[in-house]
């Protein structure tokens, strides 16, 4: 088996595994912070793909890493704002169950 192809595809498969775990986590967790963890898993799966392509394709040597850095910063911002919303919701309802958040409908 070709080492390069094996390496890239193995990294892509691991990224896909993290992505799917995040999707299942978002779908099944009823705790709002659990949903947030699912989002983090999805972003990490995408990041693994970016960095793997940056290693195995020299054209994207800088691009993949720069995009991965942007994703990391975006994830930090997203976690901050999501936790603020969750805390605000918990202050009003004393619950973090996403099933009971029906009042947020517009």
């Amino acid at each position: 088996m070709n080492f390069d192809a094996f390496g890239l595809q193995a990294f892509l498969m691991l990224g896909a595994l993290l992505f799917v775990c995040g999707i299942i986590c978002m779908a099944t967790k009823r705790n709002a912070i659990g949903v947030l963890m699912g989002v983090e898993l999805v972003l990490n799966g995408a990041n693994i793909n970016f960095v793997a392509f940056s290693y195995y394709n020299p054209t994207f040597r800088v691009e993949g890493q720069v995009f991965a850095l942007f994703v990391i910063v975006m994830a930090a911002a997203e976690a901050a704002i999501a936790l603020a919303i969750v805390l605000n919701y918990y202050n009003n309802h004393t619950s973090v169950d996403v099933d009971s958040a029906e009042e947020l409908k517009g």
Binding site: I72, A76, A79, A80
Partner: peptide
């Protein structure tokens, strides 16, 4: 994958910042 700066940023920002926030 020889992306040392991204790895360091992952450790500092994600593990040290985002996860503590969570």
């Amino acid at each position: 994958l020889a992306s040392d700066f991204v790895g360091a940023a992952q450790l500092i920002v994600y593990v040290g910042g985002t996860l503590v926030l969570v």
